[in-house]
Amino acid sequence: MSAWIDNNFPLVFLALLDGSVTAFVLALIALGLSLVFGVMRVVNVAHGEFFMLGAVLAWACFHFTGNMPLLGFLLALIVAPVFVGGLAMLSDRLILHRIQYNPESTIVATIGLLYIIQQLVLTFFGPEARPVEAPIYFRVQFPWFGYSGYKLIVAGLSGVLLLGTWFLMVRSKLGLYMRATQQDAETARTFGVPTKSVYSKVFAIGAGLAALAGVLVVPIRQADYLMGLEPLLLSFIVVIIGGLGSLRGTLVAAFIVGISDGFISVFYEPTLAKMLATVLVAAVLVLKPTGLFGEEIR
């Protein structure tokens, strides 16, 4: 075993590195989805579009600042979550609240939202993929191969945002309200928790996290109106494996999916990695429908 690792160390290292970067970004995107489901019991199919909006807004900020990468990036870090969070809050008040968060209706409603956002972006932003320059660009040379320095920054910033969210959940009053609503919305209400506003805020935070992920990722790839679909699928995979509504589960699952994706991709085929992740979802749904860390839904 150790001889094998010695022989294949560069590949193992790359798999771990690339897998971890994937895992951090995935965790950040999936966290919003998990949060929204956990607290609101809403399956938000439009989650990927919030990610895409974040990326598109990052492009807009980059453009607005006269193509100054660092300034545009910093501006986008503020503008994207505020705008997308605001949009999500509005959608909650105007759509989800009015259909009383009925599970089936919310799925249909968020599918509608997905298409509305996608088509609006197509109309105003256009169909092509537009590049955004990275705020800090450098290449890290390892003995065997090089790697994008910005990708490492993305992983680090995702980690900071994950920590921040955790801090919000366990240390703030809103976090307390959120956890209370998640455990039992009705009881929380009787104890004076303003669940209606908690719902709006959770939906906004979930969308804002996705938008931030979009801002971080866009310099690695490019902004285009269809980019929300893949992260949506991956987020669902992560959230189902981790257990719907469990933040800890989401984190663990993001790392299982990310790292295994890295290893399978490097040693076998990237397509095989996606297939196996899908098989894993099916297995989880059959063997442990609540996911690794999910609780029974009351």
Partner: peptide, 14 residues
Amino acid sequence: PIPPTETSFTRYFT
């Protein structure tokens, strides 16, 4: 082979 909708390529270069 790389799927035309792929977004991350580093792993293919190995």
